[in-house]
């Protein structure tokens, strides 16, 4: 049981202000994903929670105790690194057991716990191997095993899937989701720059930009009600279309956002009519790139498309799915 509470958290390296006044309540057992473009401070925030980086000001509480000054090993956390950080000269068994050894546990107990974790992660037959003799997915599991074996209250993941190829990434995503089910009381904080990972795994997503929290919410909240142009553009693939000019003005907004799937075709000319420039056919979907007076728009069509390049298309946003944004880039309601 561990809540994490960040209050007015700041982190600077000299003049460089990386984390700006972050306030965040993470409930025990939640799976939180920090997402944002590179350099937004998401990894720094994770490292501040882990204790590997100190905080400049503000308070950080884990389990209702202020831990600003507590070294990483005493915070009850475990961390899975992007590179997995497996000790290359130690066997899988030793890798998993290293933390227990540091806690001063007896040999028999270490063996029992490591073997239990090995079984849980289907690593039993690999326990004597060195990391270099494992596949990418197995290494990932060892890294997770190291976190599990300690019974940590908080798991921190620092872009753990970015070193894997696409197929393995999907598989590992599922394994982490399963892990979350198996350990319902463990709070998990997960950092990624990949919004697909964020959408598929998170209970709640924290979108960060330049060290500031943009929005916190469930994946669907962010998808359906992004509270700024930035969040709207960051979540969803392909990106949301932003239209300025006449169509926006008609809706009393600086700009409006329409997701590619939220267009319909009209027979008569509309505000966003244009020419079909290029088509990407993926099988399940087709993406149409249409040049309009308001710029290039992306339109998603299920299945194949009948349209030909060069054809005139009259697009019409679905009214109930139009997002309006003001001059400051914030959502208008």
């Amino acid at each position: 049981m561990a809540d994490i509470k960040l209050t007015n958290l700041n982190k600077s390296y000299g003049a460089l202000h990386i984390i700006k006044d972050v306030n965040l309540d993470i409930k025990s057992g939640e799976f939180i994903v920090f997402v944002g473009p590179s350099g937004c401070g998401k990894s720094t925030l994770l490292r501040a929670i882990s204790g590997l980086d100190s905080v400049t000001s503000g308070t950080l509480e884990i389990d209702n105790a202020v831990v600003n000054e507590v070294p990483p090993s005493k915070r009850g956390i475990a961390m899975v690194f992007q590179s997995y950080a497996l000790y290359p000269h130690m066997s899988v068994f030793e890798n998993i057991g290293f933390a227990l050894e540091n806690q001063g546990l007896g040999r028999a107990e270490i063996k029992r716990k490591v073997e239990a974790v090995g079984e849980m992660l289907q690593l039993t037959s690999y326990l004597t191997r060195l990391p270099k003799a494992l596949s990418g997915g197995q290494r990932q599991r060892v890294a997770i095993g190291r976190a599990i074996v300690r019974g940590a209250k908080v798991f921190l993941f620092d872009e753990p899937l970015s070193n894997l190829d696409a197929a393995l990434r999907v598989q590992m995503r599922m394994e982490i989701a399963k892990l979350k089910r198996d350990l319902p009381n463990t709070t998990m904080v997960y950092v990624t720059h990949d919004q697909v990972e964020a959408m598929t795994m998170a209970d709640r997503i924290v979108v960060l930009k330049a060290g500031e929290v943009q929005q916190v919410g469930t994946p669907m909240e962010l998808y359906e009600k992004p509270n700024s142009v930035f969040v709207a553009g960051f979540i969803g693939s392909p990106k949301m279309n932003f239209i300025t000019g006449v169509p926006a003005e008609k809706l009393k907004a600086k700009s409006i956002g329409v997701r590619p799937e939220h267009f319909e075709f009209s027979d008569s000319k509309t505000d966003v009519s244009g020419t079909l420039d290029y088509t990407e056919v993926l099988g399940s979907d087709s993406f149409l790139y249409v040049t309009t007076p308001s710029g290039m728009l992306t339109v998603r069509q299920p299945g194949r498309t009948e349209f030909k390049t060069g054809q005139k298309l009259n697009l019409k946003p679905l009214a109930q799915h139009v997002h309006r944004f003001g001059d400051d880039g914030l959502r208008l309601n």
Partner: peptide
């Protein structure tokens, strides 16, 4: 760097 930090978190 990850190796050393990982060991720190592991309580070494």
């Amino acid at each position: 760097k990850d190796l050393i930090e990982s060991a720190q978190i592991d309580g070494a």
